[in-house]
Design a protein around this nucleic acid. Structure first.
Ligand SMILES: NC(=O)c1ccc[n+]([C@@H]2O[C@H](COP(=O)([O-])OP(=O)(O)OC[C@H]3O[C@@H](n4cnc5c(N)ncnc54)[C@H](O)[C@@H]3O)[C@@H](O)[C@H]2O)c1
Ligand SMILES: NC(=O)c1ccc[n+]([C@@H]2O[C@H](COP(=O)([O-])OP(=O)(O)OC[C@H]3O[C@@H](n4cnc5c(N)ncnc54)[C@H](O)[C@@H]3O)[C@@H](O)[C@H]2O)c1
Lengths: 223, 223
DNA sequence: GCATTTTTGTTAATTATTTCACAATGTTAA
DNA sequence: TTAACATTGTGAAATAATTAACAAAAATGC
């Protein structure tokens, strides 16, 4: 019967489970969409239908941040969206850099997380002389030598889109320049200091996992 | 004391936990690399160091498939790699299609999961007349009308790289043509029949989750 | 050939996550 | 106002995943 009350929502996260934290961005984006289409209230079960997550899980997730809904009513979409915006630090611009302006890196630069997403790739790095000095969708491409001397303590994270064999080296340079966070698209498992944090986006793994589950689901259905 | 013995390894997956299954592709790729550099044996703890997963977890994961190692010795990399290859259906070519030849789709076509990865994007689809009829890295781009009439029952999965607003529509067409698996790069949560399966690769979610964990780890360290 | 070391496979314990069940409480409509 | 209804927030139960502990067995070194 705690009914946590909090001042700064951002402080409320002592013991938010990892699984909960990983769902928050999906909740946030879904709420953005609901607010945009003029929906002012939603119940956990309707919301659950949309994000395809059990309504109890959703209520429990929200409950780690206190009482965000109203009994018999549901959740105020605008209010909930703004709460999550703070929790996710989306009320301030996050500056990130990108290392490796190849096929994938170029796609990310062109996308640049624009819509409703307070993140900006402010600078890109590569080793290829043909790419250094160019500009892609407003972001300029610089030499890796520059990364070595840049002060990136204000940069939230580095997106790594270099070939697997160069990922560790690139990460080491980024670390040295003051970066602590990585979104790693290469298959390399990075070895990093304690205070750094990586998330992997591994499309090959995802595709193989998909193939695995498809085949095994098929076999189960047979028997 | 069961010491499961099996004929066809592919059959051995009645109750492999989801978490285990999702690690198998990483194990497989790591073993490919080890074999390539001439390493013939490895212990679960050395392997765990490389993939950054606890050695007990690794042994438990393998144990669902029977006794793959030798006490006091470890695992034969070649043998284990080949076993996983079968489990993951990587001993046969998986044909996939790609829908949406934009920035991201083009990057994926250029990559085309070549190296040590038995998957091929055999055909691409788009609505843009400027793209239809072109060829990217050996894969030809066709009209969406063609998807409607194609028989894709031999196609394992569709990679969805269309704008969010068109993802459901594209998926419906793919389903109608006989496809059951999706690797969805758009933020849309697809509504699909029971016998279909999707995996999401959601870079925006990953980036926001990264920012969340970075900030909260920082706060913890302060206190 | 024997003692020592290594390392697996597995059972049990722990921890994390999801789901159930429902009292509490606010909402809605008459 | 009041009764019927909707829906939250949360303990408790169930399920899933990880980690610890260790006997069994094979490998290695002498
Ligand atoms: N493209 C895809 O669809 C795809 C899919 C799955 C995984 N990946 C992974 O993403 C990464 C990038 O893939 P890609 O297709 O864009 O590769 P790419 O070869 O097109 O691009 C790599 C870029 O990195 C640059 N580079 C090389 N060494 C560098 C260094 N030391 N420092 C900085 N830059 C360096 C190259 O000049 C090039 O511009 C790879 O690790 C790949 O395995 C890509
Ligand atoms: N590019 C990125 O880095 C990035 C990052 C995160 C998420 N995404 C997501 O990936 C998806 C693709 O992104 P993108 O940057 O490649 O977009 P894009 O606009 O460059 O490409 C989209 C392509 O889809 C085609 N298309 C549009 N409607 C279609 C339909 N009904 N059927 C078939 N094709 C259709 C377009 O002609 C275009 O070629 C989007 O959903 C986006 O949100 C992309």
């Amino acid at each position: 019967m705690s009914m946590v009350k909090m001042g700064d929502p951002v402080m409320a996260n002592q013991n938010v489970p990892q699984a909960t934290a990983e769902r928050l961005p999906l909740y946030y984006r879904t709420l953005q969409r609901l607010v945009a289409i003029g929906k002012t209230r939603i119940s956990s079960s309707e919301f659950g239908g949309i994000v395809q997550i059990d309504s109890t899980t959703i209520r429990k997730d929200f409950s780690y941040f206190g009482a965000l809904g109203r009994k018999g009513y549901g959740y105020d979409t605008q209010h909930l969206m703004e709460f999550l915006k703070k929790i996710l630090y989306q009320d301030e611009l996050s500056k990130v850099i990108l290392i490796g302006v190849g096929h994938l890196g170029t796609a990310l630069l062109n996308h640049n997380f624009q819509k409703n997403n307070n993140t900006k790739i402010v600078k890109a790095y590569d080793v290829d002389p043909l790419k250094i000095g160019t500009e892609i969708s407003g972001t300029s491409v610089h030499s890796m030598d520059e990364l070595e001397t840049d002060d990136n303590r204000e940069i939230t994270a580095a997106i790594l889109t270099v070939p697997a064999a160069h990922a560790q080296k690139a990460a080491d340079l980024a670390i040295a320049s003051g970066i602590h966070g990585f979104l790693n698209f290469s298959p390399t498992r990075l070895v990093l200091p304690q205070d750094a944090y990586v998330r992997h986006v591994d499309m090959t793994v995802e595709l193989q996992a998909l193939i695995y589950f498809l085949n095994h689901a098929m076999e189960e259905r047979k028997s």
